[in-house]
Simulated scan of single mutants.
Amino acid sequence: MFGFRRRRRPAFGFARVAAWNTKVLGAVLARQCYEAGLAGPDIPLPAEPEHIGLAGCLCRQADLESPWLHHWCGALGMVPFYHRKVWEMAFVAQAIWEAGLLAPGRRALGFAVGREALPGFLAARGLEVLATDLDPADPRAARWIGTGQHAPPPALPFRAVDMTRIPRDLHGQFDLVWSACALEHLGSLRAGENFILEAMRCLKPGGIAIHTTEFDLDADGPPLSRGGTVLFQARHIEKLGRRLASAGHRMRPVDFDPGAGLLDQFIDQPPYGAAADRWPLSQPAETPHLRALVEDRVATSIGLIIEAKH
């Protein structure tokens, strides 16, 4: 009598299957939007920027499908995919342009720039740019070096600066300062707020600060206030606005509307990005990443624009 050997199948827990199915379905939704000509690699990229009266706001699907963002994708060498990092870079660029600071002779200071395209883009437009990041010898830089996100911009003035200890000789020297998705990694909400207040000292009277950071869409839950990544909530942003006002600065009004697009409801889960080596199946192309699960919180990106006192 012949025996039958059952073939062993890989074991997949429910949570893992659910997470994988979520990524597949998200990729399908994004692909349908790309095929409809709303965003993606084949979308026309306007040659000229468009004034929209940008103020503080959350990352939303509608922005990724808007001509103003598509223009900056072309200018910065990005593809308008449904990813909040694309939105962040475009938000900063739009805010700089609308402030009239995308012009030769202006001085710009970037914090924790890593491998961003912004320093080189601004320098090519005639701005005097000082790019900063953690000293590579600082143990805290190991996380970013290990993921390829820490490198001095080539052929640009670079200075090692700790965002929690901004040197005084940088005070009052710049027309604009910016940081993109960096201040939430300073260890606590308070440290992030303090950085924003201290960075204002680097501006000339009437200068502009532009920051993006991670934002908890739950307005009332307990905050993720300490750790390697913290999440600001609406009440923290409002408190920051009051602190800035007491120092004589003005944070532009913030629209906390999360958006009503289908992809505004999609929540990406770890592993993020190209994860084919960590999954048993090939990674679906361009899973939307406007919302992400950070620990047990649903997070997105928020952009802030702050005017220095005159």
Rank of each mutant, 00 (worst) to 15 (best):
G120V: 09
P139L: 03
A142G: 10
D138F: 01
H150P: 01
T132F: 00
P119W: 07
R190T: 03
D135I: 01
C202H: 13
I145N: 00
A180Q: 15
Q173G: 15
P205G: 15
F174E: 02
R125Q: 14
W178H: 13
A199N: 09
R168K: 09
R190S: 00
G148N: 05
P139H: 07
E184M: 08
L122K: 01
A112T: 04
L176Q: 12
D135R: 10
C181K: 06
R165E: 08
C202R: 08
D169I: 08
G120L: 04
G114F: 12
G114P: 13
P154H: 15
S179T: 14
D175M: 12
A137L: 12
G192W: 00
D133S: 11
L176H: 08
G126Y: 10
D138V: 05
L130W: 01
R115C: 09
P119C: 13
S188W: 01
A123W: 06
L189P: 07
A151K: 10
I196M: 14
C181E: 11
N194M: 01
G207C: 13
L122C: 03
R201I: 05
A191M: 04
I196E: 11
V129N: 05
R125S: 04
V177F: 00
W144H: 12
D133T: 02
T164L: 02
P153T: 14
L130I: 14
D133K: 09
M163R: 05
I196V: 15
D138L: 05
H171S: 07
P157M: 10
L203E: 14
E116V: 06
R140E: 00
L186R: 00
L118Y: 13
L134G: 06
H150E: 07
P152N: 11
G146W: 11
L122P: 02
D135H: 13
S179M: 08
E116S: 15
Q149K: 08
H150K: 05
A123H: 12
L122R: 03
D175P: 11
L127C: 13
E198M: 02
Q173I: 02
R143A: 15
L186W: 03
A123S: 13
H150F: 15
P136I: 10
P167W: 10
V177K: 08
L170Y: 06
L122Y: 05
G192H: 02
D169Y: 11
G192R: 00
M200H: 10
L134V: 14
A155T: 07
A180S: 15
A199G: 10
M200Q: 14
P136K: 11
W178F: 14
L183T: 10
K204H: 14
A151W: 10
A123V: 03
I166P: 04
W178A: 10
S188V: 04
C181H: 12
V129W: 00
R165P: 02
A155M: 07
Q173E: 15
H185V: 01
V177M: 05
G148W: 12
R165G: 07
W144V: 07
L130C: 08
A142P: 07
L156R: 07
D162T: 05
H185R: 01
E193S: 06
P153E: 08
T164Q: 14
V113R: 06
L122I: 11
A117F: 13
V161D: 06
G120N: 04
F174Q: 03
